[in-house]
């Protein structure tokens, strides 16, 4: 880890001002991702701007749904009554992630900006197009056991966001409020916030330099209320997903009126699947329908030697999650 200076910002304006002065500076909230990356010399920042005291707080009921401040902690959001009642999948995605210690520290804004667990990215001794553009991707022919099968490119097959929360947020049409260095705010849906790797895997999100995540708004919906997050991993806790599914259904008289589907652990970004949703809506809430939706979700998959199992695993995960919410 390099030497760095540390300052606290109490307002968004103050914080963005610091990064305007020092473009290489980074914001630090819980630090659970950033410090790991800095200790491994994967990111170097001459300055850290502590944003913990910026009042991006609160979990509030709005007329359309919920608004959650970006500085709220994973544990607080996961255990919040409003979230539990209106978005069980979001609560589950938070409480199935990491460990209690990490959930108590990590902000949800920071969670959204987690970086990949691809072993080639996490070890600076390896070439990696995401870390050093143009250096190559050993994962293509190497250890790709836990890497993506959807949205990949010849440059990168990493699950750029390895976590859980954004999968659920993408499923339920969550929108991020961002504030840039000019103090201007904009709204970006979570499903559009992450970028596919293409030829520029180093560019992971639409976030501009110095831009802050202010809040997340999630529209209330019947399909969100009847939702779940299913996570499959090699050990029972404290592990990233091999595959996960955030799903919600609104079923009336046995017929699906609306559906939301997103997959984790299998895409180069949190993978919202309009194909699966299309295959669900208007159909009977049966296993056959769910199987068809799962097949649709994975239709474009490009598996490699070690991760081919994810195509089947993701489908089965999705089917089990849908079965659960269908009751």
């Amino acid at each position: 880890m390099n030497d760095f200076s540390y300052t606290q910002a109490t307002t968004a304006k103050e914080a963005t001002g610091r990064t305007k002065d020092q473009p290489q500076a980074a914001y630090i909230a819980g630090g659970t991702t950033l410090l790991d990356l800095m200790k491994a010399n994967l990111q170097e920042h001459p300055q850290l701007v502590d944003i913990n005291t910026i009042p991006f707080k609160g979990i509030e009921q709005t007329k359309d749904g919920l608004r959650i401040g970006a500085m709220e902690r994973m544990s607080d959001v996961g255990e919040n009554k409003l979230v539990l009642e209106q978005f069980p999948a979001i609560s589950e995605s938070l409480l199935l992630a990491a460990s209690p210690q990490l959930r108590n520290m990590a902000s949800i804004g920071g969670n959204i900006l987690q970086r990949t667990r691809c072993g080639y990215f996490r070890d600076a001794a390896f070439p990696c197009n995401k870390r050093v553009p143009g250096s190559g991707c050993p994962a293509l022919e190497g250890d790709n056991h836990n890497l993506a099968v959807l949205g990949t490119s010849d440059s990168c097959i990493a699950t750029a966001y390895p976590g859980d929360l954004s999968v659920a947020l993408a499923a339920f049409d969550a929108v991020l409020t961002l504030e840039n260095q000019k103090g201007k705010q904009r709204q970006v849906p979570v499903k559009d916030f992450y970028l596919l790797p293409g030829n520029t895997p180093q560019k992971e999100t639409v976030l501009e330099a110095g831009e802050l995540i202010v809040a997340i708004t999630i529209p209330a919906a019947a399909h969100a209320q009847r939702s779940t997050y299913l996570k499959v991993r090699e050990r029972s806790s404290y592990a990233y997903a091999l595959a996960s599914a955030a799903v919600g259904l609104d079923v009336h008289g046995g017929t699906i009126r609306s559906a939301r589907v997103a997959l984790g652990g299998v895409g180069t970004k949190p993978w919202r699947s309009p194909e699966a949703e299309k295959a669900l809506v208007g159909q009977p809430a049966t296993e056959a329908t769910f199987r068809a939706a799962a097949a649709a979700a994975l239709r474009g998959a490009q598996p490699r030697k070690e991760n081919a199992f994810k195509v089947e695993l993701a489908q089965n995960t999705l089917v089990q999650a849908l079965m659960k919410v269908a009751g």
Partner: peptide
């Protein structure tokens, strides 16, 4: 039996999961 494995890249002979986040040992829940 169920989770521990250190993976060496077949071409570069370097471990790809040399950390306790990625080399899984059992947790209490297992």
């Amino acid at each position: 039996a169920l989770m521990e494995q250190t993976v060496r890249d077949p071409n570069l002979a370097r471990y790809t999961n040399a950390s306790l986040a990625d080399y899984h040992v059992p947790v209490n829940a297992d």
